[in-house]
Nucleic acid binder design. Sequence first.
DNA 1: CCAAGGGGTGAATCGTGATTCACTTCTTTG
DNA 2: CAAAGAAGTGAATCACGATTCACCCCTTGG
Lengths: 220, 220
Amino acid sequence: MAYRSTERTEARRVAVRSRIVAAALELIAEGGYVNAPVAAVADRAGVAVGTVYRHFPSKSELFAEVFREASQREVDAMRAGAAASAGDSAASRIAAGTETFARRALAGRRLAWALLAEPVDPAVEAERLHFRHSYRDVIAEIVADGVDSGELPDQDPEATGAALVGAIGEAMLGPLSPTYDGSFLSERPRTDGGDPEALIASLITFCTRAIGEEPSHVDG
Amino acid sequence: MAYRSTERTEARRVAVRSRIVAAALELIAEGGYVNAPVAAVADRAGVAVGTVYRHFPSKSELFAEVFREASQREVDAMRAGAAASAGDSAASRIAAGTETFARRALAGRRLAWALLAEPVDPAVEAERLHFRHSYRDVIAEIVADGVDSGELPDQDPEATGAALVGAIGEAMLGPLSPTYDGSFLSERPRTDGGDPEALIASLITFCTRAIGEEPSHVDG
DNA sequence: CCAAGGGGTGAATCGTGATTCACTTCTTTG
DNA sequence: CAAAGAAGTGAATCACGATTCACCCCTTGG
């Protein structure tokens, strides 16, 4: 024998791989899936197209991984947000999680939209579905606690969780959607929704009521 | 001059046009967007590919029209469902609309999924967004009534409407999604959700609570 | 230094459908 | 019937990206 991969080469390999993933994520965050053909990803990562294929069997696999990482980050953040209010009522934990989610989404709209709603190919869609379930579960767990402790009325926590995920996503869709009007993804300020604070407040009110708690503060 | 289009030819023209639209709708209802390349549509409609382009400037335009028609039908149905309980409380009107929507969706899953969530091209996505707004407005109107009459607590009807649209869509997504696992769109029975009646009941409970009304009956 | 294995490259190839268009067929009107 | 103006046809073309692969350049261990 004359060659065997060593620690150093392995490190380089890993580094290149993550450069590729990072490049893909950047491009998605900038302009969504359409903005990220393999050639562009390779370019951004500073490698040749072929190199991408040396690290990933297909574009789908690459993007599945990108989605997985990015979504996991969001789920973790939401869980952490909710956990920050650990001792509190289920309602405030849900509110905290929702708020975390919403703020992060608004801070990185393009990416949030890509993760939540942009049309993607089936393999990637599967990842998306998976993470929607994760969100649902984060919520369902809190709701289940609340029901057990008698704080919340009896209900199916999973159904409630799924519905809330949808509600939050849809409520954000307006503000998030890059004015999906068939034209390119423009950056122009939204004319609708308007105030993100009002939106978040409405959303929290909605979520609170939806789980069967009367919100303390009410928006108009 | 020697030729001018007459009533009869015009009628034929219209007939062909709607055959094409109908064919596209059928194909979508059977297997979604991917199942409907222009060639297949033409074939199903019994015309040549070129003919499709004589009636529509592009595939996008054709499918936008298809989506428009199909979605309008659904919105109308939902509105009608809600209107059936016209004199009743806002809560029961919302419940009626939700139930109508859900039952129709479950009856034509593929189509519902295509209309609600399947990845489509931008021009068609724009139509989808448009109709999501319509749904939202149907709900928002009822909520606004309820708020005005004092039946419902103060809230932003549009925000509530949007959130409910998302909630309903997401709750249905599991049952509707053709097991979007990267494989083809299989017909195999769903393993999750299970009982559609339970799902509908949960959904109605959720919607009722979300608008700030205590549901009369509760599911577990 | 050499041979053995990778890793990297990117132009060429492929696949998939949308779209075109030169030509044929049908209608209408003089 | 002839001319004029659609409407219909479908094979050929195009566009666009993903994917391949023959070839070059490192690194490793003897």
